[in-house]
């Protein structure tokens, strides 16, 4: 994937994040959707802008760390009673 295509995906994912908040989605569902979109954006930046896609072993390590971090964020975000 070229950096230009990655940028187009980032724009689309950002617009989707803002749109789902603007249309009134709220609570746990909003948290799940926008954090999943943020996760996808972070992976794009790591792999395409920072070129980790060229180093698959290192990319897998970053992907694992990011997955654990996003899991922790999501758990805290949906834990509101």
């Amino acid at each position: 994937m070229s950096v230009t295509r990655a940028w187009a995906w980032l724009i689309a994912l950002t617009a989707t994040s803002t749109a789902v908040a603007a249309i009134g989605l709220s609570g746990r569902w909003l948290a799940l959707v926008v954090l999943a979109l943020a996760w996808a954006k972070a992976e794009l930046i790591l792999n395409r802008y920072l070129h980790l896609a060229q180093a698959p072993n290192i990319a897998r390590g970053f992907a694992l760390g990011l997955a654990l971090f996003m899991l922790a964020l999501t758990s805290l975000a949906v834990a509101i009673p």
């Binding site: 980032l10 950002t14 994040s17 803002t18 908040a21 909003l30 948290a31 926008v34 954090l35 979109l37 943020a38 954006k41 972070a42 930046i45 790591l46 802008y49 920072l50 964020l73 975000a77």
Partner: peptide, 22 residues
């Protein structure tokens, strides 16, 4: 320089939903 800039970008895409949306 670009790597530092992408790090700034990466932090923001994670910060934005947590602080502004959810």
């Amino acid at each position: 320089g670009a790597a530092f800039w992408h790090m700034v970008d990466l932090v923001w895409v994670l910060l934005f939903p947590v602080v502004y949306l959810i």
